[in-house]
Each structure stands twice: as structure tokens, then as C-alpha cells.
Computed example of a mutant assay.
Amino acid sequence: MAKAPESISLDQLDKDQMKTFSDFLMSYNKLSEICFTDCIRDFTSRDVKDSEEKCSMNCMEKYLKMNQRVSQRFQEFQVIANENALAMAQKTGKH
């Protein structure tokens, strides 16, 4: 029994959403681990010190800016790669 095209696209949408969410969680966990390791030094109190909070915020901002910059560069690279592939296909007569 074959699946209807609508259910196939819904299945793919669900898989894509799960992949996106999984990627987000991995990134969030990595960010948390890095910033916790770099910033938290005192485990003798339940309170977060001002210096730890400031360090954590700076760490988070730097990580997110770096992640955004890498994503931007990757997109730029993809555009160039696609343009080169299209030019090569046109040059060889295949499109």
C-alpha cells in the first residue's frame, strides 16, 4: 500500500523539523557547556556572582555572533558554488 503524496511530504516535514530542533539543542548544549566551563568558578554558593553572570553573557554573545558569521559565510560559499556549477553546466551544454 503506497502512501499518499501529502503524507510523504508531512513525514518529510516532521523529519526536517526534528532535525532542526535536534541541531538547535546540540548548539544550545555546546554553548552552555563552553560558557559554564569558562565562567563558573565558585561552587560554594547558590548565588551567581556578578562576574560570572557578566562572563556568561559575553560568552553567549560571542558564541552567537561567531555562529551567525560562520552561517553567513557558508551561505555565501554555497551561492558561489551554485553559480560556478551553473556556469560549468552552461559551458558544457548541460542544464
Rank of each mutant, 00 (worst) to 15 (best):
A85D: 12
Q90P: 00
H95F: 14
Q72H: 15
K30G: 00
N84G: 01
D50S: 12
K65I: 07
T20I: 06
T44K: 08
P5E: 04
D38Y: 00
V48K: 05
A4R: 06
S22R: 15
I8Q: 05
D50T: 12
I8K: 13
L13E: 08
N58A: 05
E33M: 12
S9Y: 01
Q78S: 07
K3Y: 14
L10K: 09
F21Y: 03
S22E: 14
M26G: 06
C35P: 04
M66F: 03
R73W: 15
E83C: 06
S71V: 09
E53V: 04
K15G: 00
A4T: 06
D11M: 03
F21S: 05
D38A: 10
V48M: 14
D47N: 08
N58W: 02
C39G: 07
M57F: 11
D11E: 09
F36G: 02
A4D: 04
S56F: 06
E53N: 11
M57C: 06
L31C: 04
M60V: 14
K15I: 03
A87S: 08
G93S: 06
E52M: 02
D50I: 15
C55P: 00
Y28L: 12
C39Q: 02
E33C: 08
E52L: 06
L86V: 15
C55L: 06
Q75E: 13
D11G: 01
G93C: 04
K91Q: 08
A4P: 01
A89F: 05
M88H: 12
L10C: 06
N82W: 03
M66I: 07
